[in-house]
Simulated assay, not measured.
Amino acid sequence: MDVFVVRLESDGTVRFTVAATSRPQWALARVARPATRLVQLWMMGRYLRVLRALRRSG
């Protein structure tokens, strides 16, 4: 399950929260867990780059 929350605080601060949980069902997925974690970290980096670009443009 993935959850994405964007909040605008009263002082104008924007907070972005990403929460991802997973429980592999297949043996292959359990074996590949370290690679899966790397993909998650890569995606998180992409999200952060987009948010930084939005912050600069806004």
Rank of each mutant, 00 (worst) to 15 (best):
V3A: 10
V3R: 15
F4P: 01
F4S: 07
F4D: 03
V5R: 10
V5E: 11
V6A: 12
V6H: 08
V6M: 12
L8Y: 00
E9H: 11
E9L: 13
D11N: 12
D11T: 13
D11M: 10
D11W: 06
D11H: 11
G12N: 07
G12A: 05
T13V: 13
T13D: 12
T13Y: 01
F16D: 01
F16K: 00
T17M: 08
T17D: 07
T17F: 05
A20G: 12
T21L: 07
T21N: 10
R23P: 07
P24Q: 03
P24H: 00
W26P: 02
L28C: 09
R30L: 04
R30H: 05
V31Q: 02
V31E: 01
V31H: 02
A32H: 00
R33I: 02
P34V: 05
P34Y: 10
A35I: 11
T36H: 04
R37Q: 14
L38M: 03
L38W: 08
L38I: 03
V39N: 03
Q40R: 10
Q40T: 04
Q40A: 06
L41R: 11
W42K: 08
W42L: 10
W42H: 10
M43T: 11
G45I: 02
G45F: 05
R46W: 15
R46N: 14
R46Y: 13
Y47K: 01
Y47T: 00
Y47L: 00
R49A: 14
R49M: 13
V50G: 13
V50P: 00
L51A: 14
L51W: 04
L51D: 08
L51I: 09
L51T: 06
R52Q: 14
R52Y: 05
A53G: 10
L54I: 04
R55H: 14
R55C: 14
R56H: 13
S57F: 04
